[in-house]
Amino acid sequence: MKRRNVMRAAVVGAGSVAFGFTMTGPSFAYPAQTGPSPYGSLQSADANGIRLPAGFTSRIVARSSQTVPGTSYTWHGAPDGGACFADGNGWIYTSNCEISSAGGAGALRFDSSAQVVDAYSILSGTRNNCAGGATPWDTWLSCEEVDRGYVYETDPYGTDAASQRPAMGRFKHEAAACDADRQVIYLTEDVSDGAFYRFVPSTWGNLASGTLQVLTESGGALSWKPVPDPDGSPTATRNQVSNTKRFNGGEGCYYAGGICFFTTKGDNKVWAYDAVANTLATVYDDGLTPNPPLTGVDNITGTSGSGDLFVAEDGGNMEICIITPDDIVAPFLRITGQSGSEICGPAFNPAGDRLYFSSQRGTSGSSSGGITYEVTGSFR
């Protein structure tokens, strides 16, 4: 049965039980299985060391510790989560800086010809800014991956100062995904016994106040319960509510069409929370997939047209893998010669024909060696 047709699994107890079917009868072919990519096989590495499908090209748009060409801005170290925002006839790509003592986030501005015309800081003086998420009102949520870390709401356009959002909870934040249909923001937590949260703003579009909730499970039923003390001290947010549903190392988070997709690195899974049905499904599990191409699951994004998911690897063999609505998982690209790094921040420009991402430590294996790329081609 296919992801585009119906959600295939409901959580029962501590695991996932599948209830799949096709028009021809029961099917248990999911979670996604290894298969051929709709883009074809990967070609030999290009001049940038990236293996791509035929018809796709790559270029480097920024390097850590170096001035961004055409600007006076030095690109930050350890580039991590990112997103794209429309900017007139061009667009902006934001990128976090996952450095413990001097984190923050920067931005690249592109014109209509995809040339970088500006680069600048949008957040500074924070810690281990890992992933985050874009809001419908065109701000970038930059999340600190430290104990009792904050979410910072930043301005991709570089005009407004960043704002700390303590109401969204203080914990080891990873990613955020906005659900405008229910006017909530989902949040992942990067610890081995982490929780899955949602923030309900008092007023949609204003994150200064609201209610932090945590996903719980009792008797096979899922519920959202308020976190009594979002400040997380002295008791961590994940340990304040009974029957909190545990997730092994929450990572990337992406919302589309009523479903919040998120990843957990501790067990190499991609999950799907169906906000309409209030159910949880396993989209991908490397333990249930023969010859799994996707390991070290991390940041995740998707395409609005085809419904394809793109999942970046932290480790593995440095691939971004595709998971199709037909439940096929396959490599889309591979970075060669950078085994000491991880892929971060995959995001499509508004037109959907350019994919941005970073190798956090590049060929050097150090935070100062990060490389930010663009891949161009005919995406589905």
Rank of each mutant, 00 (worst) to 15 (best):
Y73T: 10
C260M: 01
T289G: 06
S242M: 05
G25E: 15
A272C: 01
N206L: 02
G15D: 14
P293A: 04
T244G: 00
E217T: 13
T216S: 13
N248G: 00
K245H: 07
R63W: 04
T24F: 15
L108E: 13
V214E: 05
D179R: 03
Q43E: 04
T211F: 04
S58T: 15
A162P: 14
I335R: 04
C84M: 02
T282K: 07
I60R: 11
E217L: 11
G13F: 01
N317C: 09
S192N: 02
S306F: 10
R63Q: 05
A107M: 05
D285Y: 04
D87F: 06
C84W: 00
N206I: 07
M1W: 06
P38A: 14
N89D: 15
T216P: 04
L52R: 08
E174M: 03
V191W: 00
T154D: 06
C97V: 14
G103Y: 03
D267N: 15
A78I: 09
V276T: 03
V214Q: 06
I122S: 06
T235Q: 12
D138V: 04
W91D: 02
V17H: 01
G340F: 05
P293M: 09
T376Y: 08
P166Y: 09
C84V: 08
E98H: 14
V214G: 01
G252R: 15
T235R: 08
V146L: 07
E98G: 08
W91H: 12
A10L: 12
G82Y: 02
L215E: 06
Q240T: 01
S368P: 02
T301I: 15
G316L: 10
Y197W: 08
S41M: 12
G210K: 08
S339L: 11
R109N: 11
L52F: 05
I343K: 11
Y284V: 03
P31T: 12
P79F: 07
A114T: 13
L309N: 08
S341E: 02
T282V: 15
D147R: 10
S41T: 13
G316F: 10
T279P: 00
E313A: 10
Y254P: 13
A277C: 07
N268P: 09
A176L: 03
